[in-house]
Amino acid sequence: MSDPLVLRQGAEALAGPFPPLLAEAEHLATTVLLGEHGRRRPGQGDNFWQFRPAMPFDETRSIDWRRSGRADGAFVREREWQIAQSIILWIDQAASMSFGSLKDGTTKGQRARLLGLATAVLLIRGGERVGLTGLRLPPRAGESQLARMAALLSEQDEVDYGTPEATGMLPHSRAMFVSDFMGDMEPVEAALTKAADRGVRGAMVQVLDPQEEGFPFDGRTIFESMSGGIRHETLKAGDLRDRYLERLAERKDRLRMLASTTGWQFLTHHTGDSAASALLWIYGALERRN
């Protein structure tokens, strides 16, 4: 049997990041002031939407007689169409996401996890079902799902670059991929094509560090991947700047075109920018019906 003290210390160390991450995500979610999560079309639901003139096919019981009494004709009281949707998230947890140059220590991975979990907070509290791709966490509703997500998102993969996974996406549902998208593009294209074939629409959020956008390097520089598996040394880093920025721009254009082709939305977000503005964009992108 394991030593109970050692087991408890290990458990506390493992669970340590979860409450702060969830608390930060909940705080971020509250900064995005949103109303009720109803779908603005008639159907089954609890919230009033509008009155409309009664039609010949309407049943007598559907007529609102109080409203009709204030007019010459009969009116039907319609409610908002509210039905839980399934949203699947893929948050890149590869080694490349642990890079960060900001003084406050924010890394790409931290921002990606924060945006992913804050999005889940908004959606779940709006009555949606949220899960993680790759069958890691099937979509479910309820506050307990947020704790499960926080636990899984606090892990880190050992590979240099993440590969999006489309497994577990239900037909005609929604999804979100959050990554730096600095690795091989073929798996990204394959995942979005597979999603589009199932009628899945969603959002891609590319998270980059300011240094990755500005390339402020000159002279002798050693470039090394976060896992240490890739290494390049140069005496004239400044000479690489234009080529690097050109390739980065090409990658963004490719991602943007891929999103457009598959009916998704695309955003590049920098860790030095407001997380709240990115969350607001994400929420709007996932709400947009294509």
Rank of each mutant, 00 (worst) to 15 (best):
K236R: 15
A118H: 04
L114P: 09
R77P: 09
D180M: 01
L146Q: 09
L286Q: 01
E78Q: 08
L34Y: 06
L208T: 04
G73K: 10
A203V: 11
A94G: 11
S173I: 12
G109N: 11
D3Y: 02
V200P: 01
G38M: 01
G219L: 10
R61L: 08
G16W: 11
L7D: 14
M97N: 07
E128H: 13
G126H: 06
H37L: 03
P187Y: 01
V207Q: 05
L115R: 11
A249W: 00
R140K: 14
R198Q: 15
A203E: 03
H172Q: 04
E189W: 07
S96N: 08
H27N: 07
L258T: 12
P19F: 02
L33D: 13
L114C: 05
I222A: 14
W264N: 15
R136H: 07
W90T: 01
R220Y: 12
L235T: 15
Q145V: 13
A196D: 12
R52E: 07
P139G: 09
G263R: 06
L14E: 15
G127M: 07
A166K: 04
Y283D: 07
K103F: 09
A120W: 11
A15R: 07
M1Y: 12
H37A: 04
T119L: 12
M176N: 05
E186M: 02
R70Q: 14
P4Y: 00
